[in-house]
Structure formats: C-alpha cells, structure tokens
Design a protein around this nucleic acid. Structure first.
Length: 205
DNA sequence: GCGACAG
DNA sequence: ATCTTGTCGC
C-alpha cells in the first residue's frame, strides 16, 4: 500500500500563508487496550488553541517500525474529520520521507487528506551528523545515500528534532515553521498540545 | 546469531 | 508508546 500511495506525494502546492497548524498525537492505555487520538489546531502567531478533538478507540494494528501509519493513521483521520476548522498544515508526530519506503506517517496523512503535512520525529530513522549547538542549526538526514530530512536544533543544548516532508510543503518552510512552533521547548507546541490533550482524557465513557 | 528498531 | 529514578534550572 505504501508503494502504491508513494507516487501521490507532492512537494508543490505549498500554502501561501500558514495561519494555523494542527498537532496530531496518539496516547495509549495498554491496561485497558485503549488509544486516544488527539488533534489540536493552533494559531501560529499566538500559539493559542483554536480547536481540539479527541477520538477513543482500540488499537487495530501492532506497532511495527516502518508500518507506524497503519496503527495511528486510522484514528487520527477520524479525529481530523471532526475538526471545526481546516488547518493549513498537519504537524505529525513521526517521520515523513525519512522512511524505508519514503512514505512515513506524515506522507500517509497528507496524501489521504490532501492537506499539507510535515513530520517531526523525536528519534531519527536515517543517519545524520549532530547539527551545531545554536537554535536553528541543522544537518541533513540521509537514508540510503539520499537526503530525506533535517536534524533541527530547536533549543540550544538539547537533542535535535527530525524534520521531514509529508505532502505539499518544502523542507525550508517546514524547518522555519517548526522553529516558530518551538520558541521555548524542544518539541513544537502543536505536538505538546496534542500529547497533553490525549494524555489527559479520563478513563471510561 | 546479531544489530536495528518512527511511536 | 509508558514507566521509574535522579539531576538540573527557573
């Protein structure tokens, strides 16, 4: 399926202006075999929350590296349909092109929704040299000799995040956006907000 | 058998 | 992902 959908990824059609950005994340409660898909839409200028959606469900696919989207994309797509506003870009918690078949979660969600998307992962899938120490410094991520993304330093003295393209975006714009979304912490506020939202959902109905 | 291994 | 323990800084 990934090989079939891969050709649908485009890197043009980037938004003229990016006013809103959605953060997507999935939280798990293994003890009750439940997952919570959380999507939050932020105003990029103020980083204030515009919309929140959570969807409860059960995992229907195991976690397998390289097949991550088959676990998390279904509940996230369901949550996206319930948004009251259409975000200008999806900031996904995982890889985009930095993937064995160049079709990570960010590409998957971008192609299926036809919305611009980028991937911001906490660990790298390819090889990279550590970027310099200043906020904004970056180094290329290579996977099979091919440049698939950037290790981006969002805070001084902190491990970089791993940015790769999902759909309808450019790598320069993706890194610029991530820096805007991460003025204080390592991870973009979109990811932090969605993570907080999913994790704070009470048990049961 | 050994090293890798998004979340 | 989640959990636990310990350190550092505001």
């Amino acid at each position: 399926m990934q090989q079939r959908l891969r050709p649908l990824v485009r890197f043009d059609g980037e938004p003229e202006v990016i006013r809103t950005a959605a953060g997507l994340d999935v939280a798990y409660r293994e003890e009750v075999d439940e997952l919570v898909a959380a999507v939050t839409v932020l105003d990029v200028a103020s980083l204030s929350v515009i919309d929140n959606v959570v969807v409860r469900g059960e995992p229907e696919f195991p976690y397998v590296s390289g097949l991550f989207a088959f676990r998390e994309a279904p509940p996230l797509l369901e949550a996206l349909t319930r948004l009251s506003v259409e975000p200008d870009v999806l900031v996904c918690d995982g890889q985009g092109l930095a993937h064995p078949r160049r079709f990570g979660l960010a590409c998957h969600l971008g192609v299926l929704t036809e919305l611009p998307s980028i991937g911001v992962a906490k660990t790298a899938m390819g090889r990279y040299e550590p970027p310099n120490e200043q906020r904004g410094d970056w180094s290329p991520i290579r996977y099979d000799e091919e440049i698939v993304g950037r290790a981006l330093r969002t805070q001084r003295g902190v491990k970089p995040v791993f940015v790769s393209l999902g759909h309808r975006f450019t790598l320069d714009a993706a890194c610029e956006l991530v820096l805007r979304l991460a003025p204080r912490y390592r991870l973009p506020e979109t990811t932090r907000s969605a993570d907080r939202l999913g994790r704070s959902m009470p048990n049961e109905e």
